[in-house]
Structures are given as structure tokens and as C-alpha cells.
Write a protein that binds this DNA or RNA. Structure first.
Lengths: 240, 240
DNA sequence: GCAATAGTGTCTTTGAGACAATATCGA
DNA sequence: TCGATATTGTCTCAAAGACACTATTGC
């Protein structure tokens, strides 16, 4: 449906009925953290669009110039409609625009970085609404991704990792209250780089951006729970 | 012209003749380095668009879905048509999209970071085609900027500074061959932060990304000329 | 007790910053 | 010669990393 319309516009335009009107979409690279695995939520492409094989694509849709006030608003509306999901976090990441993206004409996609709780994603997967695919280092993404969406995921992850290294953005992969071990694991997974727990602890505490919360009980010694004072803070130095 | 058309689309859409079709433009925040002053090139808004007073705006224009292959290509075409200028460097920076930008409806602008030689900019200014305004720290931008363009400049500069701190991107403000003092000055100006010449020299040379060129003669002791081996390299650490 | 995870202390290495000293040109 | 800028050397301090050690729970 989405991409069928894109080619329709192109046809119309070559016939001269319309001015060259770019198609504009918003897309989400929606991440969830499952233990040490970072996963991306993808939706099946509607049967109308594909030539037989089962293709996956990023959740997204058209901007509605009538009701959307900005791109993040547009994305939230689309995700709500598509999946009934309100992500824990959404931010505009980058735009990919051009006429050779396989959409049949000029199209412009504003790609967003989004995060949701593993519970909500697991539920959607159980309901058959999304597929969760791992984005591990070394490992290739599945080959049945539509258009340039594999590229978009890689780009989004790379920007996510860059921002994660010196900000608290990974916190949105975790519950409101978390342990330092949880936070450390999130940093390691997103930045794709191991680091020393003791040093991590020192650096993050010295940054003075965490406030203590309840003690959390797990499988070993109970750990101090923390929450971030602010939803997003930037550090002076790299944390991991 | 540009923004008049934007409202036309909105009118059409409220009358139901068109689907809600977002307007899409590309814009350049075009920087030039003049000694220790970083300046941005702005063009006068056409008389048709403004209500009397002289407004300035970023050079930019509509995407032409027929001939543009990507946003950087679109921007280069627009700058060539508007100013006869081919910038030394262009890269997509960020996108601003929404319905409350003063353009009379939903519009999406892909903002680019661009750089040109001071000579070419000076020439365009002499020909009355552009105004050059300084973007110094502390100092406010002029108040006669159209729409949200003052914001766009600030955002672009902030991203430029962030990227400049750990990459060689500022080199495009300089001639092909430059001295370490030149390069140091460019880093200081863009990152808006003074740094020690000796330490800068050590760090940039240890990065092993410069190759020696001819010796350059200035007003004191002649300096070794250098060029970058690659057009854009990322450093492990902050350079300034 | 043991397994498992949380948390502390400390040593070493590296890089950042300050700054003095020396070098080489043109006038 | 001097003024101006380039270039080198070295010292200090702070942050990063490695790693051994102790602490507290459940079983």
C-alpha cells in the first residue's frame, strides 16, 4: 500500500497531472533490549506490495499534513495506529531522500530512533504484529528486508551507538528504576564495546546524574536501584 | 515565491483538491571562514514574500523529483541556480518538519551543512547576491531572518561544532594546503573553544592523517604545508 | 557452606593541558 | 638586529583501564 502509492505519484507526475510532488514518510527503528541482545521491531509488508516472498519492513507511514504537527508526532500517531504502541522514547534521527530508493520515484523518509520495553514488544510479537530481529555486531541482518531498510537500521544503530557513548539515552531501554549492572549492560550492548564494571560504576556515579531508588533483588546480592534525574543528559566524557 | 507556494498547497488541500501533500525543500547553512570569524551566507527574501522590511533567508529551494537524485544533489542544483556556486563541501545535516513553521502548512526542510571558500563568498557579496553574517559565540544573529532560519543556523552550527571536535571536517573551510596554525584556528573558531597550539600540533600529528605539502610563507617563520590524506576522517579522541 | 552478583580500593598507563625554550623567516 | 610566527621539549595532573579484593544475598 505505502509503496504502491509512491509509484502512483510517479506515474501521475510523468503524465503531467501533478507537479513533481515528493512522497514523505516517517519510519521507526524501534529497539528493545532483551538481556544482552538488542532487537529491532519489523512489520510484515502487506501482501499487495510484495512479489511473493515474505518481506519485512520498518514500521512507518505517511505524514498527514492535516493533523501532524511535527515528525515525532506523526510517527507516534502512525505507531499507535499500526501497533497500538506508545514507545518509551522517540527522537528524529536522520532523513533519507532520493529517487533511487526502490519506491518508484522521489521519496523522503524521516527515520526515527525509538525504544520500547521488551514486555510490550514481546506481546506484539506474540500477537503476530511484529517480528523481532537481533542486531548483533558481526551478524548480518536478515536478507528479506524491504527497500533500503537494512541500511536504515544500520545507520540508525550507528548513530544510536555514537550518541549512547556520551549521553544517558540508553536508559530508555531500561525500566524506570534499574541497577548499575543493568545500565552497564545497556551501554555495552548499544556501544558494542565491553568495559570494566568497576570503572563504569565510578564514571557514572561521578557524573552526578543518578538518584538512588529502591533496592532491587535479583539472583545474587541485591543491588541499589537508581533512576536518572533527567530524561536525557550529556556527559563531558565518554562513559564506555 | 517559495513560501507563497507553500500556502497555496495548504489552501488546495483544505479545499480537497489535493491530498495532504507536504512541501519539501532543501536549505544550506553555508559557512565561510574569514580570519577568526565564521560567517554564514544569506540571501535577501524576494519582495513578493515579505511585508515591507528587508528579510534574509538561507539559500535553498524546492526538490525537483524529476531531476534530483538525492538531497545533496538537489541542494547543489539549487545553489548553482541561485548563486552560480559550487560549494567546497556539502553534507545533509538534519531535517525540520512540521506544520507550525510559518510556511502556511506542513513543510519539511532538509538542512545541509555547506562550506565555501572566503574568496567565492566575498565575490558573491560584492555582486550583491548574498549577505555575510557573523556567527560568533555571545553575539546574537540579526533579527531580520525569515521564518525559523535563525534557529536552523544555530542548530547547524551546534552540530557542526560537535562533529568538528572529533573529525577533520573543518578542513573544508581551508584551502587544499594549509599550515597547522591555519588548521588550529579553524578548529578553535568552529568548536568555539581556545586550545594550546603545541598540544594541538601534537594531537593532530599523532593522528597520522596529514601528509606534508609545500612550505608556505607568511608573515613570520615559514610553515610546513599539509593536506589531509582523506576528505573526512574521524579521530579516536577530541582534537580540541 | 557455595554460587552468584554487587561493590570497593589501588596501581599503572595514557592523554590533556600548561608553559618554557628554541628555530627560522622577512624587514 | 628585531618582530613575528613556527616548532620542540618537558612537566604536571586528571582520567582511563586493569585487576584484586571484599560484601551480601539465596540456596
Amino acid at each position: 500500500m505505502r509503496f504502491a502509492q509512491a509509484s502512483a505519484v510517479t506515474h501521475a507526475q510523468t503524465r503531467g497531472e501533478l507537479k513533481a510532488t515528493p512522497v514523505q514518510t516517517v519510519e521507526a527503528v524501534l529497539f528493545g533490549l532483551f538481556g544482552r541482545e538488542l532487537k529491532v521491531a519489523l512489520i510484515p509488508m502487506s501482501a499487495a506490495d510484495q512479489a511473493g516472498c515474505e518481506l519485512l519492513m520498518l514500521p512507518g507511514g505517511y505524514v498527514d499534513a492535516g493533523q501532524d504537527v511535527d515528525s515525532e508526532g506523526a510517527l507516534k500517531r502512525v505507531l499507535q495506529g499500526l501497533l497500538g504502541l506508545t514507545p518509551r522514547y522517540v527522537e528524529q534521527s536522520f532523513t533519507v531522500a532520493g529517487s533511487s530508493r526502490g519506491t518508484g520515484g522521489w521519496s523522503s523518509s524521516i527515520v526515527h530512533l525509538a525504544m520500547a520495553s521488551p514486555e510490550s514488544l514481546q506481546e506484539l510479537q506474540a500477537a503476530g504484529k511484529i517480528s523481532l530481529v537481533s542486531v548483533l555486531p558481526e551478524q548480518e541482518l536478515p536478507s528479506n528486508l524491504a527497500l533500503d531498510h537494512a541500511d536504515l537500521i544500520k545507520q540508525a544503530l550507528s548513530r544510536f551507538a555514537a550518541k549512547a557513548a556520551h549521553s544517558s539515552i540508553v536508559s530508555h531501554l531500561l525500566p524506570e528504576v534499574f541497577t548499575l549492572s543493568d545500565l552497564h549492560r545497556a551501554f555495552e550492548v548499544v556501544c558494542q564495546r565491553p568495559s570494566n564494571p568497576a570503572n563504569f560504576r565510578r564514571k557514572i556515579l561521578e557524573a552526578n546524574v543518578l538518584v538512588s531508588a529502591d533496592v532491587l533483588h535479583g539472583s545474587g546480592r541485591p543491588a541499589q536501584g537508581y533512576r536518572f534525574e533527567q530524561p536525557l543528559v550529556y556527559f563531558d566524557r565518554q562513559i564506555v
